[in-house]
């Protein structure tokens, strides 16, 4: 399948749909993470509907690009992307975190079509990306590798082992994206365990760093294109985002990292996103 290259206005619509899916899944499950999935929604929409090459009817298609989440806990956005892209029916999202459903709390390769690698223990994804990038280069394959990380996750030491290796091997087919929403479970990242200056750290590791407003679709698309054009170094896109973006009472509040909205809060959130529980849950149920 060729890349989708959706125009920016359609990407914005997809991001909105993804946010609605996220809230609807969380209301239904009454379990799961709200803040991170909402902050990732815009660049995830661009990754799935502009940038990446894949075949939802054949998740193991050998020609595909490889993209996955090192931050396993943002499954609401991950599963929404996959379902909106056609890897499985939208109705499966209504079984998120439920016994018997394939949408596990954290991504499971063996359960969910389109999940490249299981994750949930933080700090592993960038190393997986290094391996996929090295293997692709051995085959002179043109595929690109995308790894989505969190900012709090940068506290894991293994990230920096992988950062060293990616630069050592000059993996220009690797594009990492950091959801830089400044918050983690215990509070704001800079209070819990500061990671700044993060851009300087990656530059010092010989990475190409692109800093963008992670909610500006034009900037996101441009950042992907710049990463694609760069030769000789891996790229990290530091996507400055707002935890809980799109839902007023969640925005920039670390306490929304790891909990779902109550049904009442969820209804309000859906209203802010321009829909209702009745409308959007019916879309998922029938999708």
């Amino acid at each position: 399948m060729p890349r989708l290259f959706y125009p920016v206005d359609k990407l914005k619509e997809k991001a909105l749909f993804i946010r609605r899916d996220i809230i609807t899944m969380l209301i239904q499950a009454q379990s799961g993470h709200s803040g991170g999935p909402l902050s990732c929604a815009d660049f995830c929409a661009a990754l799935a509907f502009y940038e990446a090459n894949y075949d939802p009817m054949n998740p193991a298609w050998p020609e595909r690009d490889i993209w996955f989440f090192s931050i396993g806990h943002v499954t609401p956005v991950h599963y929404s992307m996959l379902a909106e892209a056609g890897f499985f029916p939208l109705r499966d999202l209504m079984n998120f975190r439920q016994f018997g459903g394939h949408c596990q709390g954290h991504p499971s390769k063996l359960d969910t079509p389109g999940v490249e690698v299981s994750s949930g223990s933080l700090g592993q994804g960038l190393s997986v990306a290094v391996g996929a990038a090295l293997g692709s280069r051995m085959d002179r394959h043109q595929r690109r590798i995308y790894c989505i990380m969190g900012d709090g996750e940068q506290q894991e030491g293994s990230i920096w082992e992988a950062a060293m290796a990616a630069a050592h091997y000059k993996l220009d087919n690797l594009c990492a994206i950091v959801d830089f929403n400044k918050a983690q479970i215990d509070g704001f990242v800079e209070n819990v365990m500061g990671i700044e200056p993060l851009a300087d750290k990656y530059r010092a590791f010989n990475w190409y760093v692109v800093e963008i407003d992670g909610h500006d679709m034009d900037s996101i698309v441009e950042a992907f294109e710049r990463a694609r054009a760069l030769k000789g170094r891996p790229t990290v896109i530091l996507a400055h985002t707002i935890m809980g973006k799109g839902v007023s009472f969640m925005e920039d509040k670390p306490e929304w990292h790891g909990k779902p909205p109550s049904p009442e809060q969820g209804r309000q959130a859906l209203q802010e996103l321009g829909t209702t529980w009745e409308e959007w849950s019916a879309r998922l149920d029938n999708g």
Binding site: Q124, S127, V128, G135, S136, D139, S158
Partner: peptide
């Protein structure tokens, strides 16, 4: 960097 090595191996297996 054994943690990195194990997971690089994981990534290699994703591409065959």
């Amino acid at each position: 960097a054994e943690q990195n090595m194990a997971t690089i191996a994981a990534g290699l297996s994703l591409v065959g």
